[in-house]
Design a protein around this nucleic acid. Structure first.
Lengths: 149, 149
DNA sequence: ACTTTTAGTTCGTACTACCAACTACTCACT
DNA sequence: AGTGAGTAGTTGGTAGTACGAACTAAAAGT
């Protein structure tokens, strides 16, 4: 992994950071998947609930948030709707469009999911002292804010 | 989200940290997915290559690393093998067992994937100064080391 | 030697995700 | 107003992911 770069300590620090970040991400996603699976949800569905927690979106808008094709949305929303967690309604502004939003049961489930996620991830974060936690949070937020969308 | 806990500032700091961590993880995974997709690989396959980069494992071992059922491995390895990226060989120690390892092409691809991942994630990490990067890395590693497996 | 356990595969099912094709509607332009 | 382009969502087909149950072959335990 070190052979094809101009060398220099700064680059290597970044590499190691990225390694750590990727590892942490996989571990985090594993926990999220597990929480989701306990409620018979996929990771994608979990994301849907998180997104719709404080938004009402059209199918296309949801697809964009998720980075998926709109044709994928149909099935995704279908299944959640069949379970009574999501609802579809014709958009008032555009008769082609469909609004998607959480049902009462969906809101309920989402709150429970949030609580469980916090519970499930806290063993990981509480390996750090409160001071370190705050520093880590600041650094991550800075990183998220500083680049990309 | 704040209603069912004993309250206190320490808890809220942790919540925000977890929020940030989850967000960062999703962003990281999105980048990894994209890199993988550019090579016609799923995230799981990417993980397989990362795992086998410096290991030779049996099917069951690979399944354990991935946290998946062994029956899932068959298809996963089949497809990668058909593409010439992975190889199967009977385990010398146990005639039931099958060793899996990267082919020459697989090693090659894995090196390229690593380089691309570093390239693709560096815009994110380079939002931070070198000092911050080192601090972030330390904190993440401390977090990963301190809890869980 | 006989039973139990383990390694991997096969089969059937459900879900995810994509693409291409389609319907219904909106919007811009003449 | 009327047509033509573009947009919103669905449908249908395909491939991949992942699971669980049932199976074969080989190893281990007693």
């Amino acid at each position: 992994m070190e052979e094809s770069r101009p060398a220099g300590p700064a680059v290597e620090v970044q590499d190691e950071l990225i390694d750590a970040l990727v590892q942490a991400s996989f571990m985090t996603m594993a926990v999220l998947s597990k929480v989701a699976a306990e409620h018979d949800l996929s990771l994608t569905q979990l994301r849907v609930f998180a997104i719709l927690r404080d938004r009402r979106l059209r199918m296309a808008g949801l697809a964009e948030y998720l980075g998926l094709e709109k044709s994928t949305m149909t099935g995704l929303v279908d299944r959640a709707e069949k379970r009574g967690l999501l609802e579809r309604a014709p958009s008032p502004a555009d008769r082609r469009a469909v609004d998607v939003f959480l049902s009462a049961a969906g809101i309920d489930l989402t709150e429970r999911l949030y609580a469980e996620i916090l519970r499930a991830l806290s063993p990981m974060t509480s390996a750090l002292s409160p001071t370190e936690q705050r520093r880590l949070q600041t650094l991550i937020e800075r990183m998220l804010g500083g680049s990309a969308a």
